[in-house]
């Protein structure tokens, strides 16, 4: 049986908003480590990996490892019924065909429970090898979201290049071209406003902007985003979820044949 209680229920609402447009159905894996998910989009170009560690919950009980298949659109509909300040409790059973979401208002004067039907999902799990990345860029998540949004009004793909000059985001389309360069900047008032570039060697990769834009839906979860790049490898776009874990997106590059 699984029973978890999350005081900061808004966090789970934000998690759903950041994955539901990328993946329709997914298996949530429950174990003593935490509540996790790995799922690919239908074209197998992007993958989302979520971990909410058990220590991050006020109460976490999972007697046995098991998976629960959920339609993320339906789960999002249910979680939208929780208030932003609500405490969310999730209950499920191994082999059960439903999951229960309980929403408690902070003053305990309103308690709601929603039962959602589970589904059997034949999902493909991918083994993600440990990789040494040529360049790791950490920047404000709002800045990255702004860049992706701006570039997608000009073109469909983004070339991300890291050199010792900084990180460059470029696109081109029918109306013209665009280049945005962000330099390392650590002289900021708050650490989360810094742009930090760790480069082992220069790297340049091409990606579909549509997916990058979808990843930026996770921006409300974290002030910063980390983009890890290696030649001929999928990019990793990571948003840390404070005290709890992370949401990582992997996106396969476009490569000249």
């Amino acid at each position: 049986m699984l029973e978890l209680r999350l005081v900061q229920g808004s966090l789970l609402k934000k998690v759903l908003e950041s994955i539901k447009d990328l993946v329709n159905d997914a298996n949530f894996d429950c174990s003593a480590t935490g509540f996790s998910l790995q799922a690919m989009d239908s074209s197998h170009v992007a993958l989302v990996s979520l971990l909410l560690r058990s220590e991050g919950f006020e109460h976490y009980r999972c007697d046995k490892n098991f998976s629960m298949g959920m339609n993320l659109g339906n789960m999002s509909k249910m979680l939208k019924c929780a208030g932003n300040d609500d405490i969310i409790t999730i209950k499920g059973d191994d082999g059960g065909d439903t999951i229960t979401f309980m929403f408690e208002s902070p003053s305990q004067d309103k308690i709601a429970d929603f039962e959602m039907k589970l589904m059997d999902i034949d999902s493909e799990h991918l083994g993600i090898p440990e990789a040494e990345y040529h360049a790791i860029v950490r920047m404000p998540s709002a800045e990255f979201a702004r860049i992706c949004k701006d570039l997608s009004s000009i073109g469909d793909t983004v070339i991300i290049s890291v050199t010792k000059e900084g990180v460059k985001f470029s696109t081109k389309g029918d109306i013209g071209t665009a280049n945005i360069v962000c330099r390392q900047n650590t002289t900021v008032d708050k650490p989360e406003e810094a742009t930090i570039i760790e480069m082992q060697e220069p790297v340049s990769l091409t990606f579909a902007l549509r997916y990058m834009n979808s990843f930026t839906k996770a921006s409300p979860l974290s002030n910063t985003v980390t983009i890890s790049l290696s030649s001929e490898l999928p990019v990793v776009v990571e948003y840390k979820i404070a005290e709890m874990g992370y949401i990582r997106y992997y996106l396969a590059p476009k490569i000249e044949d």
Binding site: E124, G127, I128, P234, K254, E256
Partner: peptide, 14 residues
């Protein structure tokens, strides 16, 4: 134009 690869080109199934 470059071709969109899939994740199965890079990661191991299973």
């Amino acid at each position: 134009d470059p071709t969109q690869k899939t994740l199965t080109n890079f990661f191991i199934r299973g």
